[in-house]
């Protein structure tokens, strides 16, 4: 069976059979050839504006090269891929979504004929550990530079709450340093974090050890501050956490 015929079967199926799950299907050139009503609703899209368009071109520019490599891997390894994505342009309920990219296979030839994309609201907690694992699994340093906006800098005022937040989530100095380095594309060392904690934070909180610092932090208003890097838009591929 020719690829066009298979594509027609997929189109016909999705026109006649519907579900409440938001689904889009792209061809092997990554152009959208099928998208259902729930998906259009979530992304505030009009069918005529997306049908036949390249998914990559429609995506955020910063994300395009990574998206292409995810789709390439999905096809090359015949594997499904998941991406956790935060976008403030979506309706509030759907700002944080988990996208699953699954290869669609013709049973006749065994070939991948398209990719199905399904969106869902993540059902698991997103804590500092998850963010750390996702970011460190997801990107090389160069890729992160492309992913993150140029103005992604952290001020000294923002650094302290970020370090406290991560300390409170039991990340050690090394992990905090590598997470901040990845997110802000600036070198943070274990030594620098240790110095910040022992010289500045101990003094500010009037404590002499880490345990006391964490306890005082939990009782302070600062513990309600979520670091900026968690609140910025992102698209993180998820392997295993």
């Amino acid at each position: 069976m020719k690829p066009e015929q298979i594509q027609q079967i997929i189109k016909d199926y999705h026109h006649e059979i519907i579900s409440d799950i938001p689904v889009a299907i792209i061809d092997m050139d990554y152009k959208i050839f099928e998208i259902n009503q729930p998906a259009l609703s979530i992304f505030n899209l009009k069918l005529e504006n997306v049908l036949g368009k390249s998914l990559i071109a429609l995506s955020d520019q910063r994300w395009q090269s990574k998206l292409r490599s995810i789709l390439d891997e999905c096809v090359f390894y015949n594997q499904d891929k998941s991406v956790l994505s935060l976008r403030f342009t979506r309706p509030s309920k759907y700002r944080l979504l988990l996208f699953k990219y699954t290869p669609v296979i013709s049973k006749d030839s065994g070939n991948i004929v398209s990719i199905k994309i399904v969106a869902s609201i993540p059902s698991f907690k997103i804590n500092a550990y998850v963010i750390y694992k996702i970011i460190s699994n997801a990107f090389t340093q160069t890729e992160l530079k492309a992913e993150l906006p140029n103005n992604n800098v952290i001020t000294p005022q923002e650094l302290e709450p970020a370090v406290l937040f991560l300390l409170n989530n039991d990340l050690d100095y090394n992990e905090i340093a590598s997470l901040l380095t990845m997110v802000y594309c600036k070198k943070y060392t274990k030594h620098l974090i240790a110095k910040l904690v022992s010289r500045k934070l101990y003094e500010k909180f009037d404590v002499t050890n880490l345990m006391a610092l964490k306890q005082k932090y939990r009782k302070s208003k600062l513990s309600r501050v979520i670091p900026k890097f968690i609140l910025q838009e992102f698209s993180y591929p998820i392997e295993s956490l």
Binding site: M1, I9, I10, I17, V104, K107, K116
Partner: peptide, 21 residues
């Protein structure tokens, strides 16, 4: 399309296409 034909379409589609692992 009646419901029987729709069910047949679902069966035939999934006999030809694998769209989930």
């Amino acid at each position: 399309m009646d419901n029987n034909s729709a069910l047949n379409l679902i069966i035939n589609y999934h006999k030809q296409i694998k769209d989930d692992i």
